[in-house]
Design a protein around this nucleic acid. Sequence first.
DNA 1: TTAGGGAAGATTGGATACATGGAACGGGAT
DNA 2: ATCCCGTTCCATGTATCCAATCTTCCCTAA
Lengths: 225, 225
Amino acid sequence: MDVASQRIADRLRTEILDGSYLPGERIRQEDLAARSGASRIPVREALRMLHSEGLVTLVANSGAWVSRLTLAECSETYLVRERLEPLLLRLSMPRLDAAAAGRLAGLAGEMETGAGVDAFLRADREFHLASYEGATDSQAWQIIRRMWNTTQHYRREFTKLAARSGMRDGGRDGGGVSGLAVTHMEHRLLVDCIARGDADDAERVLVTHIRRTRLELEKHPEIFR
Amino acid sequence: MDVASQRIADRLRTEILDGSYLPGERIRQEDLAARSGASRIPVREALRMLHSEGLVTLVANSGAWVSRLTLAECSETYLVRERLEPLLLRLSMPRLDAAAAGRLAGLAGEMETGAGVDAFLRADREFHLASYEGATDSQAWQIIRRMWNTTQHYRREFTKLAARSGMRDGGRDGGGVSGLAVTHMEHRLLVDCIARGDADDAERVLVTHIRRTRLELEKHPEIFR
DNA sequence: TTAGGGAAGATTGGATACATGGAACGGGAT
DNA sequence: ATCCCGTTCCATGTATCCAATCTTCCCTAA
């Protein structure tokens, strides 16, 4: 609709996603206006844009805050993802070629190198969103990208926690492999399904992947305070 | 965020849903401002709200139009609904009691009386949304309600078409029952599953219902011009 | 000490006025 | 006659100013 608001929204979105703004933090219109060199009008429109993306919570006559999720809300996000992302992947797959599968394998490899929380987070996000690149014009893609954004902060906290508590080096009961090792295998399986063009198997692997992540997340309510 | 915009948005939403504004129709900010007795500022915010609901399409430096769907987009909406609505129903069911099931049965009955397109459309919408009333606080509900809104116009056109072309009185090949009769039975089956508290069966019936509707819709590309 | 109420300050919501960008129309050239 | 280009007009985008509302802090009283 306009252009200044777009710039302001893009910048604020980036800052929220990379953790410069934290959930629950208040956003003052004057601040944003001053920092962006514009008046409050485009700032208000930018806030509305981010509100519609679920990143900002607006209260009439009161103000704007960075949206925060409860454990229950985050959990429900994963439930929705379990249903929708398999469909999105199915819609995407016909337009993914061998080169795309190669890029996915590369990202899976990056995650396995253990280069730190931020690197993992970025690669994981890129990996999954890249697997949907064949359907970026779909409504399902809009919904899913939005959900990846609203949960970004909590995935970061969860990844930090997992890295700290030594999940990556094992410590599992029952003789299983280490926590992240399962994740890595699921990613590799997914790449294989995509390379084979087998949408049915891909759907099943993806459901498993998301569901397992949700169950792990639900073990850590402290992330949500 | 504000209150005047809310009023303007509510009014415009109603007008779009009941067909006063048609898909593709241009929306001028001055018009809305004049009709609502406000300035263009709250009008712009209202347009942004409806944009985030998918009812309005915004183009920078150009204007606003009532959103229109292509057959492919509408069809994809149904694909998403096939995946999400069963989940939403599952989330809703634990909080639906016998009274709720009774209301659903009543709405199913209303649809069967054949009281015209508008009455059917209203009852059908109320029926399905009421079955999700146990989970109106969920994200899935937000998504689904949005989809019912964006497709409202095309469901109206489809219903008109079905009523006119005599689908309701039969005319099917292969000795099946008449078109709407199947719909009615699916609704009744759904009520039964809900009354029994059987979420698994309810999911299956709902998938069938939505999928069959999508396939019927895809036979009528003329609705989308 | 704590709970409640009120006043001052700060922040958001809206209106008017101005700037900017597009689109439609008309004129000219090929 | 048609296509291209420029001008004009109109709708949108933004800034400034004013009004309404909430928040916060302090004071009073139980």
